[in-house]
Design a protein around this nucleic acid. Structure first.
Lengths: 159, 159
DNA sequence: GGAACAATACTCGGATAGGCCATGTCCGAGTTTACCCGG
DNA sequence: CCGGGTAAACTCGGACATGGCCTATCCGAGTATTGTTCC
């Protein structure tokens, strides 16, 4: 099980976009983070379709957050990039083989599926408790308050 | 992010093996669950290498649990099948781009990586809290106590 | 009858193809900007 | 000098190749059984 690394890019991009009042193009975001522009565009597209970002075309267009960073959770970003499907997909082993259960006894999920779903819920709850604003604050704290000001300065400049 | 469905098979097989005092071959486990025998063998091999199962060759050989079901957690099975790597792999975006941080400021993990690691820890903790014995009991409860006795009967028979 | 030996059948183990999704890239549709021309 | 029109440049959006991992499978190495043969 490996999480798409696009999630990491998307989270960093959301943190960056929270520092800008104007839209920022995919090309500039890619240059700032040192990642492939075309591929990042694909993920930003997904964030736009999920309603997290708002895209504006044109020369001064780009992407901007639709909500304040405090109202965007890491789970929102993960679901937008990686898809809403749960990590575990039950294939209903109960209904196969010589001891297959009849469908009327399979109304509720099997115990294995329930255990995996519980773990998945715990994972999602942890992600839901972290917002883009939290990440921004933590990153700033790690750099003694210089990281975000540097980002704002870079965004204001020509790049 | 999708979890290998081999995890589901491995969990069910561990529950089944907990009901048998004698080794059970991969072919019989596959037939009981209605899954491809050769592919299941690959996963059972992984469980054997992880120290969860003990394999005995020969005509009456097969796989058996190395520990009581109460001492085998779902996390052990997941790690054996899916690998020990965490779901999120930080690519150190901080060190890339025009605002790259110097390595001496990257001693601790970045905030994004920490948040994902926390969620991963929650997921693993939930899996670690569930044992094969718990799953066995839950499955039996779902079927009003008939599932495990049926499995034991089938294993005792010719199959 | 008992024991040793050889043949056998069954088991696991690793090495080997195929399919699907994530990765990486590209070009076209749409829009804002800037410039140029006319009044 | 000012307004309208046009051309251009820049943006996003979806469609198009490529690689790696999961899926699926096979055959060879090793061992307990079993039958046979000899003492």
């Amino acid at each position: 099980m490996k999480l798409s690394n696009g999630v990491e890019w998307a989270l960093h991009c959301c943190v960056t976009l929270g520092q800008s009042q104007n839209p920022v193009s995919a090309a500039r975001l890619a240059k700032l983070h040192g990642i492939p522009p075309a591929y990042l565009a694909k993920h930003l597209q997904a964030l736009s379709q999920a309603g997290i970002l708002h895209s504006t075309p044109g020369p001064v267009g780009g992407y901007a957050l639709t909500r304040p960073p405090a109202r965007i959770s890491a789970l929102d970003v993960v679901r937008a990039i990686d898809g809403p499907e749960p990590t575990f997909r039950c294939t209903e082993i109960r209904k196969r083989g010589p001891l297959a259960l009849p469908p009327e006894e399979c109304m509720n999920a099997c115990a294995v599926s329930r255990a995996m779903a519980t773990a998945d819920a715990a994972w999602r709850a942890a992600l839901e408790g972290v917002t883009i604003a939290d990440l921004t604050q933590d990153i700033d704290a790690d750099s003694s308050g210089t990281a975000m000001s540097g980002v704002r300065e870079w965004l204001a400049g020509a790049g």
